[in-house]
Amino acid sequence: MAYSDKVLDHYNNPRNVGSLDKNDPRVGTGMVGAPECGDVMKLQILVDEETGVIADAKFKTFGCGSAIASSSLATEWVKGKTLDEALKIKNTEIVNELALPPVKIHCSVLAEDAIKAAIEDYKRKRAAREALAGKAS
């Protein structure tokens, strides 16, 4: 299959590969996967507690070029956004940006779900911490 130039660019020079400490309270981790093709994607965000803005994002994806490019792009896009803004990122925007063919749309869905899962994880951790702090005081 022919990949678009943008997919190749992200595939050859993936942005923000790596991982953040998942035990850091400011870090949210999203892990998603597609049962059919066996892709797994981990996307992490680091939230600035003062401003509520995503200060950093990292990913690691095992899968095809489109899955890697979709998650690479997703980390670029979430950086500098608030959680609410990041939640608005739609897989169709990823499809358009990377010119993904129909058979690779599920890769963009994975990336969108990974963002959402990372944000959920962060919020869950924050809520748990606040509940704990409430009990302590």
């Binding site: 892990m31 998603v32 996967g33 049962p35 599920h106 869905v109 779900d113």
Partner: peptide
């Protein structure tokens, strides 16, 4: 039909293991 390859149809423990 087969389920949509939508994320999170797999349980997180299996995903973590696969990762």
């Amino acid at each position: 039909e087969s389920l949509e390859p939508r994320a999170r149809t797999l349980d997180p423990a299996l995903l973590a293991e696969v990762f």
